[in-house]
């Protein structure tokens, strides 16, 4: 392939998610790292002396890899994740190793859901999911500011209710 690598000729969506989403992604990753590392560490401590040597090694390795992810990846995610809602369409970009651009026409939107997980509530964040008639079509914008999410959901609901038909 000749450089520079040809990226997808789509412009990125206009808006970034809330900067607090970085904290959210960090916390989530940290919880997972803890859940994986803690049992290994506990086992290594309880069996101290008789514990096989590799147990400490794997525990240390997963801890280092996990912490590296926690430090490096969330800011990357923040830079990649973008969204945009126009009069005609909802447009999102997400993913890290596999990037995903999703476009759903407003005229085909059936439901608009807002979701606050426990961590998201703590950080005053929310996710908005827009569902179309297709089983493969839901478009989710994660890590929005709570107020912005509510406003977006209200606006989307209004627009979709104004559209006649059953959106298939």
């Amino acid at each position: 392939m000749s450089a520079p690598p040809p990226a997808l000729p789509l412009r990125p969506p206009a808006h970034q998610v809330s900067p607090r989403a970085v904290v959210w992604w960090r916390l989530r990753a940290l919880l997972i790292v803890l859940a994986v590392v803690a049992p290994q560490a506990v086992a290594a401590l309880l069996l101290s002396g008789t514990a096989p040597g590799w147990l400490m090694a794997t525990a240390a390795l997963t801890a280092v890899a996990g912490l590296a992810y926690v430090i490096v990846v969330p800011p990357l995610l923040f830079r990649i994740h973008r969204w945009e809602v126009t009069a005609e369409a909802v447009y999102t970009l997400s993913g890290w190793l596999v990037r995903e651009w999703r476009i759903a026409p407003i005229s085909r939107v059936q439901t608009v859901d807002t979701e606050h997980g426990p961590l998201q509530q703590l950080l005053k964040l929310a996710s908005v999911t827009v569902t179309t008639a297709s089983a493969r079509g839901p478009v989710t914008i994660r890590g929005l500011d709570e107020g912005a999410a509510a406003e977006l959901a209200r606006q989307l609901t209004e627009t979709t209710q104004a559209t006649p038909g059953d959106a298939t």
């Binding site: 392939m1 190793l97 026409p105």
Partner: peptide
């Protein structure tokens, strides 16, 4: 009624989607 474009790191390097 919509589009999804997916591109992994490898696909990106190969210029595919």
């Amino acid at each position: 009624i919509g589009w999804t474009f997916r591109q992994s790191v490898f696909q990106r390097r190969a210029g595919l989607v």
